[in-house]
Design a protein around this nucleic acid. Sequence first.
DNA 1: CTTTTTTATTGACCTGGTTCATTTTCTCCC
DNA 2: GGGAGAAAATGAACCAGGTCAATAAAAAAG
Lengths: 194, 194
Amino acid sequence: MDPTPLLNYISRYVNLSAEEEALLVSKAGYRKYLKGQFVVQQGDICRYENFVLSGCLKTFYPDPEGQEHIVMFAVENWWVTDLGSFITRTPARFNVQCLENTELVQFSYDTLEQLYLDIPKLERLFRIILQKAYVASQDRLVRNFSLPARERYTEFRRQYPGIEQRVPQYMIASYLGITKEFLSRIKNRPEEES
Amino acid sequence: MDPTPLLNYISRYVNLSAEEEALLVSKAGYRKYLKGQFVVQQGDICRYENFVLSGCLKTFYPDPEGQEHIVMFAVENWWVTDLGSFITRTPARFNVQCLENTELVQFSYDTLEQLYLDIPKLERLFRIILQKAYVASQDRLVRNFSLPARERYTEFRRQYPGIEQRVPQYMIASYLGITKEFLSRIKNRPEEES
DNA sequence: CTTTTTTATTGACCTGGTTCATTTTCTCCC
DNA sequence: GGGAGAAAATGAACCAGGTCAATAAAAAAG
């Protein structure tokens, strides 16, 4: 595998020495998945924090009535895992599935904990990443409360310009929290202006 | 001020030496607010990360139509700030207002950045706190998508048993993303069973 | 190219939750 | 205690978005 994308990504937040980079890479796992394969399966304990080198994945959750709700998409340079399961060693509530053939860098729980001790800068790295992720999650919550579906869709396209071309429309509807039928109507009955 | 609650809280996640604790406390600000006062005001740059020693606050956001949406409540032992504003030094999108007389421990941006350098364990502390906050935020997102209002309300009472007694009902409705009228109906038309 | 399967569109009807207006109940302060 | 303002309850009309069912279009398989 080529760890360059991961190291480039990290260097945006902290400066690792050459030795630290080497250590990190030596502890990193690498795995290829085919389209359709599950990286995390609901009910299992989620073993890895995953960095996406290439490909595209969805994190989703079947609700009590069996409807699938997509929590997030992940593409190149994103982290993806069931964080709740990963940090508490409890059964995953989400599934993570590949929507394309995908290459991941993987860090197991124990490896990552050891890396935090060996390279304290990683604490800083993940602190910063998590700050951003938390703010993004709050933003999304706010949008879901205060914007109607049509505007959430517009917002989605602004924020994830690439993804709409890569995933089917019914998954975008699920991400937005509406039905595929309603999203179809939104697209085909464009904004009647006053 | 008595920093004991803060130190107790921190000790749940990392072990600080006596010197580190002393340094932390020496850098901590302390401030009392009266019921109704604003700790963060939308449009200002949010200057502090705040730890609640006593009292109760709401973080809220007026949507384009002027409706108030409550993003979170904070009580004793919670952190509260507009994190997006705080970390990026940009105007706050949220307001944070006291619902009771409130005592806060405050860390300014520069102070906290310096503390991260002086006490690297704080990177770990906040990394762990943010992991939990992020997971909680994702959970809430999922609940908002997949549960009807009545069950979200039940869930809210399970998760925040104290708060319902401390804040007016219309604020809980706002937190749940429904109107005060509808919450009133939910409470007074109890779950018709089959 | 043709068949099969997966996605997307469209229509008719339905419902959870909103809006607005009115009334009742709670607080709390003089 | 009594009165004023805030909070909660209630009723009636309404709407954003959902459900179900039936095509149509596109993609994948052969």
